[in-house]
Amino acid sequence: MTTRYRLEETTPGPQWDAFVEASPNGTIFSLSAYLAAVRQPSRLYWCLNGNERRAAVAVTESADGSCAVLHDFVIHNGILFAPPANKQNRSTVLSERFEIAVDVAAALSRRYARVELALSPQVADIRPFLWHNYGRDDAPHYAAEVRYTAYASLEGFAQAAAPEDVPLFPEISYSRRQEVRKALKTGVRTTEDATPEDLSAFYALTMGRQGITVEAERLDELRDLAAAVLAGGFGRLFATRTPEGELAAMALFGMDSKRAYYLFGAGDPHLRNTPCGTAVLWDAFGELARAGMTEVDLEGVNSPRRGWFKLSFGADILPYYQLVKDGPEPPSAEA
Rank of each mutant, 00 (worst) to 15 (best):
A150K: 04
A239W: 05
N51H: 08
E9Q: 14
C67T: 00
L318W: 13
N51D: 12
L168P: 09
M255L: 14
G13Q: 05
S30G: 12
L271H: 04
I126Q: 01
A251R: 05
M255S: 06
R6A: 13
V146S: 08
A139P: 02
A82E: 02
H76C: 13
H76M: 07
T10Y: 00
E164A: 15
D224E: 15
L222V: 12
E61T: 15
F285P: 10
P269R: 04
R39C: 06
D297M: 10
S175H: 13
D125M: 02
E215K: 11
W308D: 06
E246I: 09
A113T: 15
E287V: 11
A289F: 10
D103H: 14
A260S: 11
G208M: 04
N49I: 00
A333C: 11
R110C: 11
Q159K: 12
R4F: 06
E215M: 06
Y5H: 15
D103W: 09
V38C: 04
T278S: 03
E197A: 15
S303L: 13
R177L: 06
A248C: 07
Y134E: 01
G50Y: 01
T27W: 12
A204M: 01
A36F: 00
A226D: 02
I75M: 14
L263Y: 02
A279M: 03
P121Q: 03
K325Q: 13
G232F: 08
L48D: 06
V104R: 14
V102G: 03
Q178F: 01
Q88R: 09
E244P: 02
D268K: 11
E334P: 00
F253S: 02
E145S: 10
P269C: 10
R97D: 10
A144S: 08
L35Y: 03
R223F: 06
F157N: 04
A152M: 07
R43F: 10
K258N: 03
S153D: 14
L263V: 08
G265V: 04
R127N: 10
G265C: 09
E99Y: 11
A105E: 11
P319K: 13
S257Y: 01
T60P: 11
S257D: 03
S66F: 00
N86D: 12
G286A: 07
A160T: 09
G233I: 08
S175W: 04
G267E: 02
G235F: 05
A101I: 14
E61P: 01
R39W: 02
D283V: 06
G13E: 01
T190Y: 08
L252F: 03
R305Y: 11
L108D: 05
T92E: 15
T195G: 11
A152E: 04
D198T: 10
T213L: 07
R189I: 14
P14K: 00
A216F: 01
E61L: 15
R97L: 13
M250Q: 12
S332Q: 13
S303A: 14
P140S: 04
Q159L: 12
F253H: 12
M1L: 07
A139M: 04
S66R: 05
A56V: 07
A231S: 13
E52P: 00
S109Q: 09
S109N: 04
Y148G: 00
K185D: 08
Q322S: 14
D137W: 05
V123M: 06
A37W: 01
F238S: 09
G307Q: 11
R189W: 07
T195H: 09
D268P: 05
K185H: 09
G327V: 14
